[in-house]
């Protein structure tokens, strides 16, 4: 993902779609966590986790994960 200085990737999960399969946790355990019937996740992503988060988003069975860039 092309990005300038001071930009960050922001994760959003559509909880109406999410069915808690945990595929994203397998792909990006630093960012996603299954707990008590809810998916917990960081919002602003450490650049080191971007590749894993992109894998989580594209492999999500419900396509419930959206990534976008935002100013820090």
């Amino acid at each position: 993902m092309r990005r300038g200085r001071g930009r960050a990737t922001v994760v959003r999960v559509d909880n109406d779609r999410c069915e808690l399969y945990g595929i994203c946790v397998a792909e990006a355990p630093e960012v996603f966590r299954l707990s008590d019937n809810r998916l917990r996740h960081g919002r602003r992503i450490d650049p080191a986790d971007e590749i894993a988060v992109a894998a989580a988003a594209r492999n999500c069975p419900m396509q419930a994960i959206r990534l976008r860039e935002s100013a820090r």
Binding site: L20, Y21, G22, V25, A26, L34
Partner: peptide, 10 residues
């Protein structure tokens, strides 16, 4: 058992 699936996948 999604938690178990995570463990077993690893």
């Amino acid at each position: 058992r999604p938690h178990a699936m995570l463990d077993w996948t690893a």
